[in-house]
Write a protein that binds this DNA or RNA. Sequence first.
DNA 1: CATTTTTGTGCGATATATGAACAAATGTCA
DNA 2: TGACATTTGTTCATATATCGCACAAAAATG
Lengths: 251, 251
Amino acid sequence: MRETDFVSGFAKGLKVIEAFGETRQRLTIAEASKLTGLDRATVRRSLLTLSELGYAVYDGKFFTLTPKVLRLGHAYLAATPLPIIIQPHLDQLSERASQNASASVLDGTEVVYIARASQRRVMSINLTPGSRLPAFCASMGRVLLAALPESEARSVLARTDLRANTPNTKTDPEDLMAEFRRVRAQGYAVIDQELEIGLCSIAVPVENDRGQTVAAINIGAPAAYVAAADMVERFLPLLKETQKALRLVLP
Amino acid sequence: MRETDFVSGFAKGLKVIEAFGETRQRLTIAEASKLTGLDRATVRRSLLTLSELGYAVYDGKFFTLTPKVLRLGHAYLAATPLPIIIQPHLDQLSERASQNASASVLDGTEVVYIARASQRRVMSINLTPGSRLPAFCASMGRVLLAALPESEARSVLARTDLRANTPNTKTDPEDLMAEFRRVRAQGYAVIDQELEIGLCSIAVPVENDRGQTVAAINIGAPAAYVAAADMVERFLPLLKETQKALRLVLP
DNA sequence: CATTTTTGTGCGATATATGAACAAATGTCA
DNA sequence: TGACATTTGTTCATATATCGCACAAAAATG
C-alpha cells in the first residue's frame, strides 16, 4: 500500500474511540491525548467530530461515548454470517447441556466472543458478544491457538502477557506449546479453573467443510457442579455433535 | 464548532464501517461507495486504512471486517458504568422471574440493548448488547419515549418508519402519543405481541436519584405462557423492586 | 495569588479529497 | 463466439483541508 492510501485522520480517530475502552466513562481532551499519544489539537478535532456525528457528547469539559458507537462494533456481528449461523446451534447445545455455551474467534492474543447462550450465571465477569479474554488460558483460546502453525502460536504467546489468573493458570510457554499439541491431537481443550476459580470449561474447534478452523465453541460449568475430569464424558459428545452440524453448514 | 474542527476523513471512515452493517459480510470498493455515497477513491482509502490497522482484511476484491471492530463498540459498554451496574440486578431479576430480562437506552428512534440476562429463548431474533429495535413498538421503547417531553417524542415518531411488525402493532402517531401518556401515568408499559407474534413484555424506567430516566428494563415472556393481562400482576412487583434498587445506586 | 495544567486558536507545512482519465475486468446481446 | 457497453480498481494533478506547533487564554490547583 502506498502512503497516500492511508487516511491518518481516520486512524487517529479510531484510536481515540478505543481510548474510552481503556479507562472509564468520561475523557477530557488532555486525558484522551495522553492515552492515545496524539497531539491535543488532533484529539480535540476527532472528539468534536464524534460529537458532531452523534457518537459522543461534550459538556464543555468531558466527552462521553453514546450508544451510537455500538453500531460500529455491531457492524461486524451483523455483517458476518458466522455468529448468525452459529447462534441457533449454540442455543440448542446450551439447552441440551443445561450449561452456558459460547462461540469465539481469535483476535491477536485474545479470544473475542461472537455469540453466547446462557443457562445460568457462573462467571464473575459478564461475557457478551465483543467481550475479550486472554487466549492462552481460555478453553476456546487453547483450541484456536492449537489450530495455528506452531511458529504463529509461539509468536502469539511471545506477545501475550502471561499472567496467572488463578493458582491453576499455566504460564510457561513450553508447557503451553505442549498443551497445544495435546489439544490438536485430541481435538478438544479442557480448562480447570485456570481463568477463574470455580469455573471449568471444554472447547472444540468449529471447522468448515475444508477443515479450516474458523471459530471455537465451548461449554462452561461450575467446578462444584461438574468436576474437570467429568467434563469430557458429559459434554464432549454434545460438542462434537454441534461441531459436526456446523461443518456441514459453514462455507 | 468551527468548520476546521471537523475531521471529514474520520467521519467518512466511520460511515464506511457502518456500511458493512447494512448489507452482509463482504463489500467491494464500488459497493461501499454506493452505500455511503462517497467517491470511490475516498472509500478505497478508508478501506485500505482499515485493513492496515487490522479492522478489515482485503483479498484484492472484497473487504471484510475483522473482530477487531468489536473493540470500537465495546468501548461504549466498557466506558459506561450503566451496563456494569445494571447487569447483576438484571441477573437477579431474570432468575426470580424465570424469564429473560433486558436493559436498554434510547438512540434516536431505536432502543439499543446494553445488557441482557436470559433464561429461555423466546424471540426469533437474537438480542445481544448492541442490538437495536424500533422504539415505538417495544416495551422499553415506550417507556423511554414516554419519559421524553411530548414534543420530542412526537419528533421521534415523525422520524420513525411506523411499520407494523404484527397485526397487533400500534402505528397511529396519535394512538402512540396517548399510549405514552398512559405509560407515564402508570409507570410501566406492556406490549402484547406488537413486535413479534407470541411475545409479550413489560418494562419500567430506570431512574437515577434525581428522577431522570437513564434507561429501561423489561421482562419478556411467551404469550402462550403468560397472558398479556397477567404480565402486570406477575412481573411488575419484581420490576419495581429492581427499579427501586437501581435508583439508589445510580449517580 | 502564584503556579501548574488544560483548553482554544492562528498559521505554515504537509497530507488528503476530488473528479477526471484510463486500463482491466466483467457483463450483455446479436 | 466476438464486439460493444458497463462496471471496477487505480492513478494523477491540484485545490483544499488537516496536522502539529507555538502561543494566549482560561481553569484548576495548592
